[in-house]
Nucleic acid binder design. Structure first.
Length: 447
RNA sequence: GUGGAUGUAGCUUAGUUGGUUAAAGCGCCAGUUUGUGGCACUGGAGAUCGUGGGUUCGAAUCCCAUCUUCCACCCCA
């Protein structure tokens, strides 16, 4: 193995036959984000390892066993970003964006890296669309980002997603809750699975997440975080729900939702699907009021989410969502003979400059083979140029959908206007969609 | 990191109890008389049967290892 022709485990190539689908998702997501007032931030793929240790949390699985960390030639410990929030916060602080009007709302669309065992919906290099709202304290901000995520799915025609929200409180009320949880699970310690036993000390809230039937049955009767929220946290959570109701966004409160990154406080939420296998969380996020301070800034509330592009793609494939068609060739120019070949290239060049998708033969094939090729690439129109066409200037343009041909005479026109004649001829075929090209004023200038 | 399954031409697969030049369909390329595609026909290229060992006179077929992919655990997007 280890041949140069093998990609790295857990990575994906996106080929021309499907890249247009990703482009569609990306442009949709960008447009929606900007409608919500979020603008793009781009940060490096790698950062100081310490940044992730501090933000994501030393005890998390992500930091402990999933990061791609290496030492660079200067002896610094560098890590490929496992998520997008840390870099965004770092950049926010480094460039003093807290001095700009708050809240600062940013989005990113980038690759992330986690050294996990790949499976459906989980890759080692994957892509996230995420937003962050810095300096936004109110429940309205939480609701706004949930609405944004919801809008993305709606726009892309994804359905059957459930929005699950929870509040994990602030450090103060969470401490109370931890105590109560530990007391409860202590009574059932003998029944818990091995992993949950280890979680008992490390992070008892994660036991709530366990999928083993025994543990989840025990967890069902466990104390619920929402009963332990302090007054402020409770009010915040209630208001988030009111805002969501106000926007007609369906959600359910799920006390089991516990995020695996340390920086979350108060609101947490997930968009979950059961159609793409075990990794059903397509989008996850929440509030992280302590993170900016943790990374050395002044205390500033914030919230955000991240959406897995590959999971979204999986979901869209599973639901057979519609994608706009890939851009196809408008005109293929078949030619034979050196002079005609050169003429074909010249015409193609003119038309391309006008924004029309044109291709010509670069494999020196027979006219028949060129026509076959034109058919395969889905060219809407073709024309053939040979000796006789060069001589009398009369060229046939063929509509590939119905085979109807149309003659045009280019002999009385300069090179510069020949391409306009061709364009007009193409637009006169009403069956295919080039009619919207308006060339009337250019042609008007001819006569 | 743990467990289960998988791996034959670009793709989808066939390969019988281990036995001569590893099949097929699709795709690709080229032809089917004069310079025009979609149909049909003909021909061609293309596989060291994931990789490395081993058993055997002989292995795509058996054994071991390793890698990949897939599925689940774990964790997360």
């Amino acid at each position: 193995m280890a041949l140069v022709t093998n990609s790295i485990k857990g990575t994906l190539d996106t080929l021309p036959s499907s890249s247009y689908k990703l482009q569609y998702i990306e442009s949709a997501v960008k447009e929606i984000a900007e409608n919500y007032g979020f603008y793009e931030i781009r940060t490096p793929v790698f950062e100081h390892t310490e940044l992730f240790n501090r933000s994501v949390g030393e005890t998390t699985d992500v930091v402990q066993k999933e990061m791609y960390t290496f030492t660079d030639k200067g002896g610094r410990s560098i890590t490929l970003r496992p998520e997008g929030t840390a870099g965004a916060v770092r950049s926010f602080l480094e460039h003093g964006l807290f001095n700009e009007p708050l809240p600062q709302k940013v989005f990113y669309l980038t690759s992330c890296y986690r050294n996990e065992k790949p499976q459906a919906g989980r890759l080692r290099e994957f892509h996230q669309f995420g937003v962050e709202s810095f300096g936004a304290a109110t429940p309205a901000a939480d609701a706004e980002i949930i609405a944004l995520a919801n809008e993305v799915f709606n726009y892309l025609g994804v359905n059957n997603l459930s929005i699950e929200i929870n509040s994990i409180g602030c450090p103060t009320c969470r401490a109370e809750y931890h105590k109560a949880l530990k007391e409860y699970f202590a009574e059932h310690k003998s029944e818990l699975c091995d992993t949950c036993l280890s979680r008992f000390d490390r992070n008892p809230m994660r036991i709530l997440d366990c999928k083993s039937p025994v543990c989840s049955e025990i967890a069902e009767k466990a104390p619920v975080i929402t009963d332990f929220l302090c007054e402020d946290c409770n009010e915040h959570f209630e208001l988030v729900k009111k805002y969501l109701n106000g926007m007609d966004i369906d959600f359910s409160v799920n006390p089991q939702i516990v995020r695996g990154l340390d920086y979350y406080t108060r609101t947490v939420f997930e968009f979950v699907s059961n159609e793409i296998g075990a990794q059903g969380t397509v989008c996850g996020g929440g509030r992280y009021d302590g993170l900016i301070e943790e990374l050395g800034g002044k205390p500033l509330p914030a919230c955000g989410f991240a959406m897995g592009i590959e999971r979204l793609m999986l979901l869209m494939e599973a639901q057979k969502s519609e994608f706009p068609e890939r851009k196809k060739c408008d005109l293929f120019i078949a030619s034979m003979g050196e002079n005609a070949n050169i003429k074909a290239a010249a015409i193609a060049n003119d038309l391309r400059n006008e924004g029309i998708s044109v291709q010509f033969d670069t494999a020196s094939r027979s006219v028949k083979a060129q026509m076959k090729f034109a058919n395969k690439i889905g060219a809407a129109y073709t024309m053939v140029i040979g000796d006789s066409e060069l001589e009398n200037g009369i060229i046939k343009i063929k509509n590939m959908a119905d085979g109807i041909e149309k003659e045009i005479n280019l002999s009385n026109f300069t090179d510069e206007f020949q391409s306009e004649i061709i364009r007009q001829a193409m637009s006169e075929f009403e069956s295919l969609g080039l009619n919207d090209i308006d060339i009337s004023n250019i042609l008007g200038g001819l006569s």
